[in-house]
Design a binder for these strands. Structure first.
Lengths: 152, 152
DNA sequence: ATAGTCCTTAGAGGGGACTCTAAGTCAATA
DNA sequence: TATTGACTTAGAGTCCCCTCTAAGGACTAT
């Protein structure tokens, strides 16, 4: 299957502006053109776009993604570099999850505090910073409950 | 205890530039001055800064944080708003964790693919997109192992 | 007493990632 | 045939969040 930029924009959630911007930034050198100079995307391109999207979501700068794509273009000689990149990105994502869990904990504590404050009618009546930490198990139980709810 | 802006910068990891920028943006109207006009932070201020940092980490725009701080300044009449804000932010953080777990899964899959490719010497020899999804339990086991390693 | 360090202010500069405008081409439809 | 709509390009503008500069004042150590 072949797709125009507009179709790809709808399918990926990236605007056509963004898709052209990505091309200019060297992220999508693989996209071909038709005989009128218009971009045509195929299914492999969509897969790679999805991967680019994933990497961007994990906080990787466009420049690093560009590097990765150019390694892909360069062929099998760059397999080790690509593996190393993903291994590093794995650490980054794990770190993000770690921080998000800590943030969730703080936010949950605040919800608890404010619920009691609303009930009491005043913030002064509740202990606002006795941050009774949840255990790792309790945190994981929260994540698990959430995932169950989402059928992840 | 009282602290100068430089001390606070070291303690919080926010630069003194950033601390002044936050004040200009209305995030820290609570910070007092000494008789030379220099900012002096107390321990409550550090607590609030830590909270601001947490909210920012969860992706909240500075403008929304400013709103929250002004609710705090306004007193008990705004408790419900603050509770609602944290409840909404809880959903945001849970969503972030959800996405991070999916990203971790994709990255892990890529690591697997590239490890096999490196072993085989070519990308062409391995199935690159049979994304054999991990179960939620396996994902959680990963998070748990990571947390155990970090003594969270 | 002189350098160094810290602070103040207003305002300019920068980076990342878009987001859009303007002017033009092309193909299909009423 | 005329218009609509999707596409092209280069380049300007925007948004968020800093990050720094310049010019100057005050304290601290040598």
């Amino acid at each position: 299957m072949l797709y125009s930029i507009g179709t790809v924009a709808k399918k990926t959630g990236l605007s056509s502006y963004t898709l052209r911007y990505y091309e200019k930034a060297g992220l999508t050198p693989f996209v071909k053109r038709d005989d009128h100079g218009r971009r045509i995307f195929n299914d492999d391109d969509l897969d790679l776009l999805a991967l680019i999207r994933c990497l961007k979501q994990t906080g990787m700068p466009l420049e690093d993604i560009r590097q990765f794509v150019s390694w892909c273009q360069a062929g099998d000689g760059t397999l080790a570099e690509r593996l190393a990149m993903f291994q590093q990105q794995k650490l980054a994502v794990e770190q993000q999850i770690h921080e998000s869990l800590l943030n969730l904990q703080k936010v949950n504590h605040k919800i608890d505090v404010y619920q009691r404050a609303v009930a009491a009618g005043s913030e002064g009546l509740v202990d606002c910073d006795s941050l009774s930490q949840l255990s790792a198990d309790e945190l994981l139980a929260q994540v698990k409950a959430y995932e169950a709810a989402q059928k992840l």
